[in-house]
Write a protein that binds this DNA or RNA. Structure first.
Lengths: 353, 353
DNA sequence: CTGTTAGCGCTTTCAT
DNA sequence: ATGAAAGCGCTAACAG
């Protein structure tokens, strides 16, 4: 045909062979130049890369997947969003997770499952059979998580957002130190002079909830503060509201309430609204998650921000290591949340401008 | 080996050939039984399907993709979430989009792009070259959207969440009627007896903003109400706050403020907070999007909920039709948002229990 | 260091 | 109605 490349190549149709012809080498050498640079002479490699560039060649992932049994796809299962809850921006997490994945040469594929753990495991299995998913990212791990057992039995690399609560050292995980976070929040309100600091958290079947509660206990004990003001309720605005009313009705009522989630804290704010009390001024409130809502309510809600971009990066790196067959023990990363102080925990209402 | 299937098949390794052997037919017939049922004798087909079932066979998508140049993957680009904004739960949208995709036999793959429109288009192109993406879902269309032109020039099926503002009838889209929504919100506050109803919306370069503003104008004109109270600002809490102060400082101030977004409405709530005024009681407020925040602030924010699950379903159906080569003109679906009334627009503070 | 051979699992010809 | 052959684009394994 022609000797030099001219005009845009018809989309999606440049193959290895074409690059090889262009560079005057075999297909294999092109493959090597791309995947095993050291197996090819620097001079040849240069010529090949030039041809790749000129032709705008991109390897066909389907072919690669077929050949290598590896699709460069990482699967993540979304949970149905709960519109009534102020949770961490899953959006944001997905975005950074995907960004990290792409940067590392992968793509994120979404997995859909219904029917609890069993359904999720079945969905994983189906996905594995149909596509050669390279790895899975899990969120919200529990004690004795069946998904972990399943993935491990299949020998598929995976990493979890959420530590292995049963002390499973073989699992790669990234998590945020909820205990340290709640401790910081409690210390913060204590520093404002509060001595009757209550905690509204989750029932004991939640490892995450226990962890966060510990932080509150830590901080109270370190200051010899009472720890009688506490509630353990399922995460919802309504439950937070009721718990707040309860703790404010106590003989020696709470003057500060440290919550295990923004949702609960917003319930507290509603209770104060109902009582005609002012958040911050009359009762200090802190939440957890730095949900979008925290910044938007008035007054702003003091809360703990999870470093989700770092979580995303670390998760991808964890599975990347696993896939590379890195012999080192699996990634365990515990990150610190950041206390974001807003007016809900400050007595001096720093109003407006 | 053995005559009957026994125990779980080693994961991800049942091939067409194995099914064929099991059923005593050729690989080709199995393929036909699955993809072209009418080309195979009912009797044989039955035997084949039984074998498929027994072996737990799932076709390998990589092989199929390689052969058919079609991966059953639908791509969607996420935008980086803006933590300072109360937007529709993208989470939720992604979830239902994926659920619909899976139901229709596809999977959602996330696309990552930086660098605006150009970057996005480049990302699409790269993705197309590497994987054989079957279709794209676009969000947030503009006038003269370059992405539309690009995708069309490549002949790739796509559908957009957001109508074609330049009257491009060839594009498949699904959208929500912002004008009707704002009209309903305005009618609602008018029904509460308000006559000085202001609007806080977006600058005129936003088609979406214009559309929503029209609804307010519609409702005001239909009732002979003044339309002098309006602001057009970039979407942010701070801008909403300032605009509210401005409209409340007017000689004949607003008693109700209809906003183009929850973010703006929350800005209004902050302004009221600063002025010691009570949302609903002193000034009625409505937002738009039914962001999670709307349900969680106190008082709750009256707002418009987009039927995103229906949007998701329709989008998938749109691209599915396109891929099936449906000759009918492309999908155009305009859905109605639902007015969610909460206390921010009600004078009688329905407090508590 | 480079080229040749073979085959991943599937489906579109084309025979039978 | 069914089977055989060929090939999608790529790379591991083996020569040379």
């Amino acid at each position: 045909m022609e000797h030099s490349s001219r005009g845009p190549v018809p989309h999606g149709h440049v193959t290895l062979v074409q690059v090889a012809q262009r560079a005057g080498v075999s297909a294999q050498s092109v493959s090597n130049a791309l995947n095993n640079p050291d197996r090819v002479a620097p001079e040849t490699r240069k010529r090949i890369l030039a041809a790749v560039e000129e032709l705008g060649y991109e390897p066909n992932l389907s072919a690669r997947a077929l050949r290598n049994r590896s699709s460069s796809l990482i699967a993540f299962k979304m949970r149905p969003a709960r519109p009534d809850k102020a949770s961490m921006l899953m959006d944001d997490f997905l975005y950074v997770l995907n960004a990290s994945a792409v940067e590392a040469g992968y793509h994120l594929i979404l997995c859909h499952a219904e029917g609890g753990q069993a359904g999720e495991i079945k969905a994983y299995r189906d996905l594995l059979k149909k596509t050669s998913i390279d790895a899975f990212i899990l969120a919200e791990t529990h004690r004795n998580d069946d998904r972990v057992a399943a993935l491990r039995s299949w020998g598929v690399p995976f990493a979890a957002f959420g530590r292995s609560w049963d002390g499973d050292d073989e699992m790669a995980w990234v998590d945020v130190d909820g205990r340290a976070g709640t401790r910081a929040a409690t210390a913060h309100v204590a520093a404002q002079g509060h001595t009757r600091i209550g905690h509204i958290g989750w029932p004991d079947d939640s490892e995450l909830g226990q962890d966060r509660r510990e932080g509150w206990l830590d901080a109270c004990r370190a200051r010899n503060l009472d720890t009688d003001l506490q509630a353990a309720v399922v995460d919802s605005l309504e439950n937070g509201r009721q718990a707040a009313h309860h703790l404010l009705d106590a003989a020696r009522p709470a003057t500060a309430l440290v919550c295990a989630s923004d949702t609960l804290a917003l319930g507290v704010m509603r209770a104060l609204h109902e009582r005609g009390l002012r958040p911050g001024v009359d009762v200090a409130i802190t939440g957890y998650d730095d949900s979008p809502t925290a910044a938007l309510v008035s007054p702003g809600l003091t809360t703990l921000r999870q470093p989700i971009d770092e979580v995303g990066r670390q998760l991808i790196q964890a599975v990347d290591n696993l896939m590379a067959g890195d012999p080192r023990p699996p990634h365990h990363v515990l990150l610190e949340p950041e206390l974001i102080v807003r007016d809900s925990s400050l007595p001096g209402r720093r109003d407006t401008r």
